[in-house]
Simulated assay, not measured.
Amino acid sequence: MNNLSLNEYVKSKRKSLGLSREELALKAGVGLRFLRELEQGKETLKMDKVNQVLKLFGMQLGAMPMDRNNLIEP
């Protein structure tokens, strides 16, 4: 999964496992609305719930370097 965004990663993994959104939400213990928002790229999500989903894939949230060209300089 080369450099996919979080929402792209979750959606891709879910589909590769043949799971519906409803099935993944149930397995992860999160609501369907939350999973839908995660897959649609909502920018404000609870990290603990994101980690509940990622845990099913053997992953967790972590820090990544940013493209320095996108930083706002004072």
Results as ranks from 00 to 15, higher is better:
M1G: 14
N2I: 11
N2A: 12
N2G: 13
N3I: 14
N3G: 13
S5M: 10
S5A: 08
L6G: 07
L6H: 08
N7M: 09
N7K: 08
N7L: 12
Y9M: 10
V10F: 14
V10D: 12
K11A: 14
S12R: 12
R14F: 12
R14D: 14
R14I: 15
K15P: 14
S16H: 14
S16P: 02
S16D: 14
L17G: 11
L17H: 13
G18D: 15
G18N: 13
L19I: 03
L19S: 03
L19Y: 10
L19P: 05
L19T: 06
L19N: 08
S20A: 02
R21C: 06
R21A: 10
E22M: 04
E22R: 07
E23R: 07
E23L: 11
E23S: 11
E23Y: 02
E23D: 09
L24S: 02
L26C: 03
L26Y: 06
A28E: 15
G31L: 04
G31Q: 04
G31P: 01
L32D: 05
R33L: 04
R33N: 08
F34K: 02
F34P: 08
F34C: 06
L35H: 00
R36L: 01
E37S: 10
E37D: 13
L38M: 07
L38F: 10
Q40K: 11
G41F: 02
G41S: 01
K42Q: 06
K42F: 01
T44P: 03
K46H: 09
K46Q: 00
M47E: 09
M47W: 10
D48W: 07
D48A: 06
D48G: 01
K49Y: 05
N51H: 13
N51A: 10
V53S: 00
V53H: 00
V53Y: 00
L54Q: 07
K55H: 03
K55P: 01
K55C: 01
G58T: 04
M59I: 04
Q60D: 11
Q60F: 05
L61P: 07
G62S: 11
A63W: 11
A63G: 00
M64V: 07
P65S: 15
D67G: 00
R68I: 08
R68Y: 13
R68W: 05
N70L: 13
N70S: 09
N70Q: 12
N70F: 05
E73S: 07
E73Y: 10
P74E: 10
